[in-house]
């Protein structure tokens, strides 16, 4: 009996947090999404969203860029995490990868403006090797590059952890039974590290959906995502209803992604 009340007490801080900073804001967003400019209850915002090609295009755009960023991040992170786990001072190397996340995102974005600008370091190098200065800023390439750079630590960490958890004897067994390296990777390592990959994809894809500062600073507004639209509706048109509606759509999209990448308990998976 006592332990039960104890548990309840322990739940108080977390419960309060959940209520005040998770449920209340989400409820407010949902509430606002049903209000029009005159604060009347309406479904118009949703009708506008799904009827106007602009918002649907923007949604596709956001999904597409988030996908590109996630794939790019994964392609770099997986081998890196694998390499890290085989190094001697892996905690130190890991720390070096986490280190940039301590720096403010805006500062990093401004640093990249300096690197990619016409007279920046990147163009100085291109001139030096004889290619000549190129337009780097305001291209899809630079946008995906910078977004990937920013997201990499969030992908490496979960993958690194799942590779760390990998039992070396499974790999040895696989080799002993005559599997090639590729087969070992495909049949043993990849399935066993998949939970880490899924966690990484979640923590990269979802924030990438609503990037808005980078789209302007690095993308020069050539890349428009739903985040841009939300920013405009809240700050310029002051149409909080429409902004909230886009927010709700984003939240729903995120839930869908969580479901797709979430761990399925029924399948059992590989034993540890």
């Amino acid at each position: 009996m006592k332990s039960k009340t104890n548990n309840l007490f322990y739940f108080i801080p977390y419960g309060l947090w959940l209520l005040l900073f998770v449920m209340a804001p989400v409820a407010l967003i949902v509430y606002h999404s049903f209000l029009n400019l005159n604060q009347h209850f309406t479904l118009d915002n949703y009708i506008t969203y799904f009827k106007s090609g602009t918002y649907l295009m923007m949604t596709l755009n956001s999904l597409w860029y988030a996908l590109l960023i996630t794939v790019a991040t994964l392609l770099i992170s997986y081998p890196t995490a694998y390499l890290l786990s085989n190094l001697k001072h892996k905690q130190l190397w890991l720390l070096l990868i986490i280190l940039p996340t301590w720096i403010n995102l805006l500062l990093k974005a401004y640093a990249f403006i300096g690197i990619f600008s016409q007279s920046g370091v990147a163009n100085q190098f291109l001139t030096f090797i004889g290619i000549g200065p190129q337009q780097l800023l305001f291209t899809n390439f630079s946008f995906i590059f910078v977004a990937t750079y920013i997201q990499i630590p969030f992908m490496i960490l979960p993958i690194f952890n799942s590779i760390e958890d990998l039992n070396q004897s499974y790999i040895n067994a696989s080799h002993d039974l005559g599997a090639t390296s590729w087969q070992t990777f495909r049949k043993v390592i990849w399935p066993m590290t998949l939970p880490g990959v899924k966690a990484g994809v979640q923590s990269v894809f979802i924030p990438s959906l609503s990037l808005f500062m980078l789209t302007r600073l690095i993308g020069g507004n050539k890349v428009i995502t739903l985040g841009t639209a939300i920013e405009e509706h809240f700050l310029i048109t002051m149409n909080w209803g429409m902004g909230s509606t886009i927010g709700v759509v984003l939240i729903v999209a995120m839930v869908v992604i969580m479901i797709f990448t979430g761990e399925s308990k029924t399948r059992g998976g590989v034993p540890k």
Partner: peptide, 20 residues
């Protein structure tokens, strides 16, 4: 009016989306 500002903003967003 908020309605007209909304129209300006939608058209402007569309313009930004169209420029690649």
């Amino acid at each position: 009016s908020p309605h007209t500002i909304g129209l300006y903003n939608d058209l402007y967003l569309e313009f930004k989306m169209n420029h690649h």
